[in-house]
Design a protein around this nucleic acid. Sequence first.
DNA 1: ACCGAATTTGTCCTATCTTGGACAAGTCCA
DNA 2: TGGACTTGTCCAAGATAGGACAAATTCGGT
Lengths: 97, 97
Amino acid sequence: MLGEKLKELREARGLVQRQVAAKLNVDTAYISKMESNEKPVSRTHLKKLSKFLGINEEELLTIWLADKVYDMVKDEAVALKALLATEEQVKKNTRRP
Amino acid sequence: MLGEKLKELREARGLVQRQVAAKLNVDTAYISKMESNEKPVSRTHLKKLSKFLGINEEELLTIWLADKVYDMVKDEAVALKALLATEEQVKKNTRRP
DNA sequence: ACCGAATTTGTCCTATCTTGGACAAGTCCA
DNA sequence: TGGACTTGTCCAAGATAGGACAAATTCGGT
């Protein structure tokens, strides 16, 4: 999940939440909640975080999107089938957009 | 997409929108919009539809969910990568829920 | 054990978006 | 013409996002 990744990155850089919070102009409680997946991370925050934490934005974006999708399907019995169907759609529509 | 499927099923049964609308207690405009994917189909409607149209609910549900997921990822460059990651998550968490 | 900093948790708020509809008016055929 | 369908607009209720703030908890040093 994204939260764990953000925390891991922050700690690997030796940063404390207060410093990250300052960069995003929010308080530390908000950061804490991002890191524990209690609050969604907005795309603009995500961009700033990738810059500040020095990580490829695409990687973060992938986790972010996967989390959102997972949240949508996790309670559905047909989750896997639906994911496979979605892939087909995506592949089809990237060939000729 | 779900809308097309619903329309196809309805027509295959020789039904008109008015009849489906009556079953769901809504007007035909609403049905029309469901069939053209302009309005989301709620789960309770979906259940009634599967019963009324005589189709396996799971099949409809799969399309319904795939549509929702597709909508979420369709504009993202990392769509496919995220879908694959989501699959992993789903597989992992179905083994030990 | 104690202190202060770091983090977490709980509650609250406002603004915006989404749902699930209705209704009116239009279009399309046969 | 009339039935079937579509399109556009509107609306209330509920959900969600994006925070702030206060209070509680945890944790590293000493």
